[in-house]
């Protein structure tokens, strides 16, 4: 974003994370104060939450940077430790895949009480394998099915609690 001679760099993802942390902290602080203002209730939570909110404010200022003459550093000009971090950077497509995988885990967690852990795991495995680039119309279903059978079947026999499954 540009504002006159200034260029404003905003780390939107980082900003979102800090807002989430500050939001959860604020909610927890309000809930604690609403329950009771007795010292045994607020002794840790209130000072810690205040400290966290202050730190979040500090980090927000680091997420938004104003620069008059932006100079794009090239990777070869960067110090060693920054170069190391750059090497680990994921491409936008990799990030999208990682985000979709996270959503897939969420779908697995939400769906297994309804359709059974075995069926949900099988569907998740097929989805994740295809998403991550595994190809082979025979390999994907065979690996997903055998992995599900071994892991869910084994867990349902080993664990002392009943697993919510459809087939095992």
């Amino acid at each position: 974003m540009r504002l006159g001679p200034w260029k404003i760099d905003v780390e939107y993802g980082h900003l979102a994370l800090v807002i989430v942390i500050a939001g959860v902290t604020g909610f927890y602080l309000a809930d604690t104060l609403q329950v009771s203002r007795n010292i045994n209730n607020i002794i840790l939570v209130v000072p810690l939450a205040m400290l966290l909110l202050g730190l979040c404010l500090l980090v927000v200022t680091q997420c938004i940077r104003f620069r008059k003459h932006p100079v794009q550093k090239r990777a070869t000009q960067l110090p060693n430790h920054e170069r190391d971090e750059l090497e680990q950077e994921q491409s936008p497509m990799d990030l999208l895949h990682a985000f979709l995988l996270l959503l897939g885990v969420g779908a697995l967690v939400m769906s297994y009480p309804l359709i059974g852990l075995d069926v949900a795991t099988l569907l998740f495995m097929i989805f994740a394998l295809l998403l991550l680039g595994v190809r082979g119309w025979l390999f994907v279903p065979i690996y997903a099915a055998s992995f599900t059978a071994v892991v869910v079947g084994g867990a349902s026999r080993l664990l002392p609690y009943p697993l919510p499954t459809l087939l095992f």
Binding site: V105, M125, A128
Partner: peptide, 14 residues
């Protein structure tokens, strides 16, 4: 990793 990542995620979930 294309096989390991989903497999470990399922193991972690169980």
């Amino acid at each position: 990793l294309t096989i390991l990542i989903p497999s470990v995620l399922v193991l972690a979930l169980i």
